[in-house]
Nucleic acid binder design. Structure first.
Lengths: 113, 113
DNA sequence: TGACAATATGAAAAAATTTTCATATACTGC
DNA sequence: GCAGTATATGAAAATTTTTTCATATTGTCA
């Protein structure tokens, strides 16, 4: 294969580009985006951005099955996107990290156009 | 079902919460995150953040099949995350939107911890 | 125009994810 | 301890997504 024009012009170094990818932690970022890329999980995260909530309430607002919400909450917990606390026999969920709120804000701006 | 404690305490209104979700354009945001949630697509986006590139070069850096990259580029195009221009018989890809760069930066910070 | 390089695309195969169903666990108040 | 509420979890079913394979399209240059 012949080297393409752009490479020649930019004197682009493939190895360098690839190591830049590693440094950027593409894999971990991809996992984060993937978790936020499910509509139920994202809805949960958006709700929690407004207010902490117990599982029961999330189920009520989203109108989905308890089991489904519980599974998605586990994925969100495992991804360190949400955290929990206990109140009597309820589990209260909240966002774990302020970055997530910012991420939502930027994504929302992108989508607005 | 009995109303849970958190609801009582916060006087939480489910309808209000649900309409907040619509306003936030959860669905569109979810699609954006989903697109960025694939490791190959995200790798492409990270590369393009550093420098515009033709398809050939992307393939070389990522070491994947031409067809796979081409399919993923189409998804990125359709999502308005990347745009193209022509240079002789090559197609040069670049990021379409400055928000994406910011999004990557925030996501990277979240992941760093 | 013909040959080749670069990229795109449709459809099938392979893999991963989401959702449901059944059931388990844990905690509260009596 | 018992009954009931709240939440979690494993595994199967359903669905979606990713990857591959074969082939098509488009542009360049001799």
């Amino acid at each position: 294969m012949k080297e393409c024009e752009v490479i020649k012009v930019q004197r682009f170094n493939a190895e360098e580009a690839k190591s830049a990818l590693i440094e950027n932690k593409v894999e971990a970022m991809g996992k984060l985006f993937k978790v936020l890329g499910d509509k139920n999980r994202l809805a949960i995260v958006c709700l929690l951005k407004e207010s902490d909530m117990c599982v029961h309430e999330i189920i009520k607002v989203l109108g989905k099955e308890q089991s489904l919400i519980s599974h998605q909450l586990k994925i969100l917990r495992d991804s360190k996107i949400v955290k929990t606390s206990k109140r009597k026999n309820e589990t209260v969920y909240s966002l774990d990290d302020e970055h997530i709120g910012i991420l939502l804000k930027i994504a929302n701006e992108h989508v607005k156009e």
